[in-house]
Design a binder for these strands. Structure first.
Length: 699
DNA sequence: TTAAATTTAAACAAAT
DNA sequence: AATTTGTTTAAATTTA
C-alpha cells in the first residue's frame, strides 16, 4: 500500500508538471501495452475508427506535448518515479505510444485543468510560451517578423471551423459507438439513431465532412507531432496533393521543439522503437509498424506542413516545397500577437478535445465492457482487465494479490473483440487504476459527484469486471450499496456481497477491504445500525451523509451552482469560444473548469454535443440533468410518502439514486458466480424500523 | 505547512 | 472454539 501511494505522490503545488511527467514515465508502459492489445484486432471495418483514433490522439498528443513542455525544471518527479523509471523520456515516450493516452493521464490532465483555473492559466501561458518559442526559432532562422497580412477575422472563421470539426468528431465518435452497439446488440430503432444524423448533419458551417476532417487534421496537426501527422497522412484520403513531404531537411522542429524544453527528450527520441516494443506485449503489430514508420518519416516533415499546405490554423497556403513552407511560416506566422492568439486558441481547442475524448473513451469503454464482458462468462471477462490492473495494481496489493493476478498478458481477452477501440479499454483501466492506488478516493469521488450511482452507472460493467479500484470512498460505496437495496438497509454481509458483486476489485483481499467496510460503518455517523430480530442491518442517515458532503462542497460554492448552470452549457460553450475568439485571452478556461468539477467525471465541457442530436443540449448536460432528476426522483421514491414540501436544506443534494435498474439486473444475473454468499434470506420485515428512521432523517 | 479525510492495520469485545 | 460483527486506536497518505 505504501508503495502505491508513493508512486502517486505528487506534490500539490507542482501538480501540473509532476503529474505529467509522472504519468508519462510510469504509466506509459501499461498504456502502450494496452493500446496495442486491441489495436491489432481491428478489422477493415474499423479502419475508420482507427482513423478517428489517430486523429484524436493527435490532438491529445499535441495537448500532452504542450503540457509536458512546461517548466523543464518542474520535471523533478516524485521519488518513487525516479526509482521505477529512468523517466525523462516523457516526450519521446509519448510520441512512441500515441495510441495510448492512458485515461489516467487524461484524468490527470483533466484534474489539473479542473483543479485550479489558475493552474490552467499558468499552463496555458507556458504552453503559449513554448509555442512562441517555436515561432521565434523559425523566425530567427530566416528573417525578422514581417507584416502580418492575415486578418483576425479570417482566423476567427477558421477557429469556428475548428469548432465545427470538433463537433463533427464527436458526432463521428457517437456514430461509431452507435454503430458498434447496433452491430453488437440490436438493430431496431435505437435511440442512438436519432443522433446518427451526424452524417447528414451538415454542421452549421455547411462544411462537408471531408472538409471538416481536413480541417480537423489541420487543427490537430498544428499542435501535434510530425509523427501523428504522418499517420494521418497515411490514413487520410490523401486529398489530392501527394503526401510527399519528401523528407526535407529534418525539421523535427515539431518534436524537437516541443521537447526542447525538456532537454532529455532528444536522446530518448533516438531509441524509440525499442522501448515501446519491449513494452508492448506484441499485441498488434500493425500499429507498431505504423508508428515506427512514422518515426522514420518524421525526418523532413513539420507538424504544420502537410499535403503541400501550411497547416497553421486558418492558413492553407500552398507551399511547393518544404523550404517554401518554412519561409511562409516565418513570414506569415511569425511571433506576433496574432500568432500568439492563435496559439492560445489552438491550445484551448486541444484541451477541449482532450477532455471530450476522455469522456468519450470512458463511455466507449463502458460500452465495450458491457457488451463483451457481459456474458457473465466467469473468467474470460475479468482477465483482460486484470492484466492491466495487475500491472499497476500489483503495487497496490502486494500481499494478497498473487492469486488472481495476472498472468495476463497473454490472453488479455483481447480476444474480446475486434474492436479497434480496444486500446481504450486498457487505457481506461489504466486510468482508473493507477491513479487510485493508495487512497481510492482521490479524484472526483464523492466530492464533486453527488450521485455516486450516476458515476458508477456508466462504468458499472467496467468495475464489475475490471479489477480496478473504484474511485470512490468506502463510505460512498457503502452508502450506494445500501441505497441500492430494496429496503435501504443491508446486513454487513450483504454489503460485502454488494462489493464483490459490483466490483471486481473487491473480490480480492477480502480481509482488507472488509475490515475497511466495517471500520467505515462504525466510524461514520451516516451509517446507522439498526437492530433486527435476526441481527442487525445498516442504514444510511442521509442527513449525516449529506452533511459531510455538503461541508466539503460548500467550500466551493461554485460546485453547487454549476449543476444548474450546466444546463446552459451547450450554448455557453459556444459563447465562450466565441469570446475566446474575440478575446483570445483565456475566457474558455473559465468554462472548462467548472464542468470538470461538476460531474466528477469530466463529462466534459465539451458539451459541444452533436449539433444534430437533441436540442443541442450536449450529452453531458443531459447527464447532469439526468442525475439531478434521478436525485430528486430518488428522493421521492425512497420515501414513498416523501416530503412534497420538504426541501432539504439547501442544495438538497439529489439524494441518490436508485435509478439503476442496472443494479437490479446485476443482482439477478451473472455475478452470482462471484457472489455466492449473496442471497441471505433475510426476509424479516424489520424495515419498518428502518423506514421510520429514514423518514425522520430525511426530513 | 496544517488540518481534515481516507485507507489500512490491528487489537478487542460481543454476538453467533 | 472459531467466526463474524462492531468499535477503536493509530499510522500513513492524499487533498484542500
Amino acid at each position: 500500500m505504501m508503495q502505491e501511494s508513493a508512486t502517486e505522490t505528487i506534490s500539490n503545488s507542482s501538480m501540473s508538471q509532476n503529474g505529467m511527467s509522472t504519468l508519462s514515465s510510469s504509466q506509459l508502459e501499461a498504456g502502450s501495452r494496452d493500446g496495442r492489445s486491441s489495436a491489432g484486432d481491428t478489422s477493415s471495418e474499423v479502419s475508420t475508427v482507427e482513423l478517428l483514433h489517430l486523429q484524436q490522439q493527435q490532438a491529445l498528443q499535441a495537448a500532452r506535448q504542450l503540457l509536458l513542455q512546461q517548466p523543464g525544471s518542474g520535471l523533478k518527479s516524485p521519488k518513487s518515479q525516479d526509482k521505477q523509471r529512468p523517466l525523462q523520456v516523457p516526450v519521446s515516450v509519448a510520441m512512441m505510444s500515441p495510441q495510448v493516452i492512458t485515461p489516467q493521464q487524461m484524468q490527470q490532465i483533466l484534474q489539473q485543468q479542473v483543479l485550479s483555473p489558475q493552474q490552467l492559466q499558468a499552463l496555458l501561458q507556458q504552453q503559449q510560451a513554448v509555442m512562441l518559442q517555436q515561432v521565434c526559432m523559425l523566425a530567427n532562422k530566416n528573417k525578422h517578423q514581417q507584416q502580418q497580412q492575415q486578418q483576425l477575422a479570417a482566423q476567427q472563421l477558421v477557429f469556428q471551423q475548428q469548432l465545427l470539426q470538433m463537433q463533427q468528431l464527436q458526432q463521428q465518435q457517437h456514430l461509431l459507438n452507435m454503430q458498434r452497439q447496433g452491430l453488437l446488440s440490436l438493430p431496431g430503432p435505437a435511440p442512438g439513431q436519432a443522433a446518427l444524423p451526424g452524417q447528414t448533419l451538415p454542421p452549421p458551417g455547411g462544411l462537408s465532412p471531408a472538409e471538416l476532417q481536413q480541417l480537423w487534421k489541420d487543427v490537430t496537426g498544428g499542435g501535434g507531432h510530425a509523427i501523428e501527422d504522418n499517420g494521418i497522412k497515411h490514413s487520410s484520403s490523401g486529398t489530392g496533393t501527394g503526401t510527399g513531404v519528401g523528407g526535407g531537411g529534418g525539421l523535427d522542429l515539431s518534436t524537437n521543439n516541443s521537447s526542447s524544453t525538456t532537454s532529455s527528450s532528444n536522446p530518448a527520441k533516438a531509441s524509440p522503437p525499442i522501448t515501446h516494443h519491449s513494452i508492448t506485449n506484441g499485441q498488434s503489430p500493425a500499429l507498431n509498424h505504423r508508428r515506427d514508420s512514422l518515426h522514420e518519416e518524421g525526418g523532413g516533415t513539420h507538424p504544420l506542413y502537410g499535403h503541400g499546405v501550411c497547416k497553421w490554423p486558418g492558413c492553407e497556403t500552398m507551399c511547393e516545397d518544404f523550404g517554401q513552407f518554412l519561409k511562409h511560416l516565418n513570414s506569415e506566422h511569425a511571433l506576433d500577437d496574432r500568432s500568439t492568439a492563435q496559439c492560445r486558441v489552438q491550445m484551448q481547442v486541444v484541451q477541449q478535445l482532450e477532455i471530450q475524448l476522455s469522456k468519450e473513451r470512458e463511455r466507449l469503454q463502458a460500452m465495450m465492457t458491457h457488451l463483451h464482458m457481459r456474458p457473465s462468462e466467469p473468467k474470460s471477462s475479468p482477465k483482460p482487465l486484470n492484466l492491466v490492473s495487475s500491472v499497476t495494481m500489483s503495487k497496490n496489493l502486494p500481499s494478497a494479490s498473487p492469486p488472481n493476478l495476472p498472468q495476463t498478458p497473454t490472453t488479455p481477452t483481447a480476444p474480446i473483440t475486434p474492436m479497434a477501440a480496444m486500446p481504450q479499454v486498457p487505457s481506461v483501466l489504466g486510468g482508473a487504476n493507477v491513479p487510485s492506488m493508495g487512497a481510492m478516493r482521490r479524484r472526483h469521488s464523492d466530492k464533486y459527484s453527488m450521485p455516486l450511482s450516476s458515476e458508477i452507472a456508466p462504468n458499472y460493467e467496467f468495475y464489475k469486471n475490471a479489477d480496478v479500484r473504484p474511485p470512490f470512498t468506502y463510505a460512498t460505496l457503502i452508502r450506494q450499496a445500501i441505497m441500492d437495496s430494496a429496503d435501504m438497509q443491508l446486513t454487513l454481509n450483504e454489503i460485502y456481497s454488494w462489493f464483490t458483486r459490483t466490483f471486481a476489485y473487491f473480490r480480492r483481499n477480502a480481509a482488507t477491504w472488509k475490515n475497511a467496510v466495517r471500520h467505515n460503518l462504525s466510524l461514520h455517523k451516516c451509517f446507522v445500525r439498526v437492530e433486527n430480530v435476526k441481527g442487525a442491518v445498516w442504514t444510511v442517515d442521509e442527513m449525516e451523509y449529506q452533511k459531510r458532503r455538503s461541508q466539503k462542497i460548500t467550500g466551493s460554492p461554485s460546485l453547487v451552482k454549476n449543476l444548474p448552470s450546466s444546463l446552459g452549457y451547450g450554448t455557453a460553450l459556444n459563447a465562450s469560444l466565441q469570446a475566446a475568439l474575440a478575446e483570445t485571452s483565456l475566457p474558455l478556461l473559465g468554462t472548462p473548469g467548472p464542468p470538470g468539477l461538476l460531474g466528477g467525471s469530466p463529462p466534459g465541457l465539451l458539451g459541444i454535443s452533436p449539433p444534430g442530436t437533441l436540442s443541442g443540449s450536449p450529452p453531458i448536460m443531459l447527464q447532469s440533468a439526468h442525475e439531478e432528476l434521478n436525485g430528486s426522483l430518488d428522493h421521492l421514491d425512497t420515501n414513498g410518502h416523501s416530503s412534497p414540501g420538504y426541501s432539504p436544506p439547501v442544495h438538497m443534494p439529489p439524494v441518490h439514486v436508485k435509478e439503476e435498474p442496472l443494479n437490479m439486473d446485476d443482482d439477478d444475473c451473472p455475478m452470482s458466480l462471484v457472489t455466492t454468499a449473496n442471497h441471505s434470506p433475510e426476509l424479516e420485515d424489520d424495515r419498518e424500523l428502518e423506514e421510520g428512521n429514514l423518514s425522520e432523517d430525511l426530513e
